[in-house]
Design a protein around this nucleic acid. Structure first.
Lengths: 313, 313
DNA sequence: TATAGCTGTTGCCGATTCGGCAGCAAGCCG
DNA sequence: CGGCTTGCTGCCGAATCGGCAACAGCTATA
């Protein structure tokens, strides 16, 4: 069952739960056992790994270093086991994805469905969260692949791909703007705006542009859900601003129209990054899904830019 | 003392020594203990890790997979310990280098000396061997940094840098060829040749060129030592063919002359590659030495090409 | 062909480590 | 203040590890 020294698993659990007793519960062992293993680790390393507070444990600097080491060990062990199983036939793989909401509607479902069509034994776990949380989840080893807005670039992650998509206005097909081919931010602001809350990264992309405008608009709706914003726009409540990649189905069925945003004559880009924990070799099946993901993203990028090129011409 | 499960260290030792009893000797434990740990590993993984022959053990496919995993674990643990030590002040680092002979004369000694001048606590281990052995040593985890001729490119290694150096004839300063600026292979063959044995990679670079010539020359001396060949050339025994990077001191003191080789009007290159085990994060001090090494190699490459440019002009 | 030397493996048993139970002091919160 | 949580620590049984000696299988040498 447990391949490596028990102390590694115990340390890993304590780091995740933030408490020795909670870790002991998830591990189905006595808390004393966990406590002793941690103490043994600290004595062997010669430095405390956690700061003890009344309400739990927090990693020290050395503790964070050890956390990195333990993570590479456990993740590489997973890869090893998966590789061995794929050799012996009895094989089951799993891919864990952390991504921002805009991909959960059309891109990811399509990719996962097509991948599972070919490889039935691969299990997927997808979690939707904010860009910053995606990167954190990767750093903490809680996901294999992360897709997020490329705002900052943390050092313990490797950026596998970086694709640019145009921001644009999303309106119902009978909206007054819908006949245009591109729109400026000022033109949008003449109508009720469905605005993203700061939790969504689109907010941080648009904020500097809005700040340049003379008047600050008063949004009709503020929301932290891409899904909600999209549906509101479809119902004619107002203009939402998103990337085209987030509105696949409704656009195809003709209920929504996507109008690339034009800012002083140049497009507004949102950079989408695909991330993987650096210092890590992915299992074969994860790597293969990652390749498909990157390729599909690249296809979409090319396709959308071609569309807009046509529009502009 | 031992951070990870004993089975890992035992497996590692058995893989290196190729025998359970030999591993037990190097580990200072009974051979029965080693045998049991290996059996336990195999039962846990569900597949044999070694093929038992009468004379020892050989890795199976699964065994090689585990070997990769164990190597990343142990190497990353080294990095962790070194990072912790560098944090606590009590720090000692070590860099293990495997390289071909041509670098052992001038480049490496200079680099190591200058690096130790700044970082006294770094210990160096350098082993000179053939190009193929350098890559093998890296794959087996027996060295941190490898420098070898870039002939093949094994998949478990990462090529950090690739530098080209011209091959050329090495002659004593009073040799008949010494007044020339460049030489062709045919011109060299008019004189006694000091030829490399197949163990040296230069042999494999020159062999195709020699095969093109009408007559096959009879070498005056064949040797497997760059050092020996260089000294023979200095004593006027004949013409040796090497890269300039291997003949630093004697050339500077004016005892030797390096004449770039000219093959049908174009230079003859030898590609020197710097390698590191892929899937590995180097400790900080190793990484810093690696950077210096790559930079120095780049400087030499630029400088030599500038020299030959001058010569040609 | 016999023998000596090597290999890995296995019983047996002591030494070491691990883990569970109960109880301790310390801090937070109502 | 009492109830709750936290991590830590004796005590002791269970599991693991490791050493010694013996065994079978193989190779090389006499």
């Amino acid at each position: 069952m447990r391949f490596h020294a028990p102390a590694l698993y115990y340390f890993h659990a304590v780091r995740r739960t933030g408490s020795i007793r909670a870790a002991a519960r998830t591990l189905n062992v006595a808390s004393s056992a966990v406590s002793r293993q941690i103490l043994k680790l600290e004595e062997e390393i010669g430095a405390p790994l956690f700061e003890r507070t009344a309400r739990g444990l927090t990693l020290t600097t050395v503790g964070e270093m050890l956390a990195r080491h333990v993570m590479t060990v456990l993740q590489d062990h997973d890869r090893f086991r998966s590789d061995v199983q794929s050799l012996s036939g009895t094989w089951r793989g799993s891919v864990s994805i952390a991504c921002i909401e805009s991909l959960a509607e059309s891109l990811l479902p399509g990719l996962i469905a097509s991948h599972r069509g070919r490889a039935r034994r691969v299990t997927f776990t997808t979690q939707v969260m904010g860009s910053a949380d995606v990167l954190d989840a990767l750093s903490r080893g809680e996901a294999d692949i992360g897709i997020a807005m490329a705002l900052r670039h943390p050092q313990d992650l490797r950026q596998v791909a970086l694709k640019r998509f145009r921001l644009g206005a999303i309106v119902a097909t009978d909206h007054a703007l819908a006949r245009r081919r591109t729109v400026t931010l000022a033109q949008c602001l003449a109508f009720p705006i469905i605005h993203a809350l700061p939790e969504l990264s689109i907010y941080h992309l648009l904020q500097p542009l809005i700040a340049q405008l003379a008047e600050t608009p008063e949004p009709a709706v503020q929301a932290n859900s891409i899904d909600l914003m999209r549906e509101l726009a479809a119902r004619g409540v107002g203009v939402a601003i998103q990337t085209q990649i987030g509105i696949g189905r409704l656009a195809k069925s003709g209920q929504l129209k996507f109008l690339p945003l034009d800012n002083a004559g140049s497009p507004v880009w949102s950079d989408l990054g695909v991330y993987v924990r650096a210092e890590r070799v992915l299992p074969a099946h994860t790597e293969s899904f990652l390749q498909e993901l990157v390729r599909e993203l690249g296809d979409r990028e090319r396709q959308e830019n071609a569309d807009h090129g046509k529009v502009r011409a």
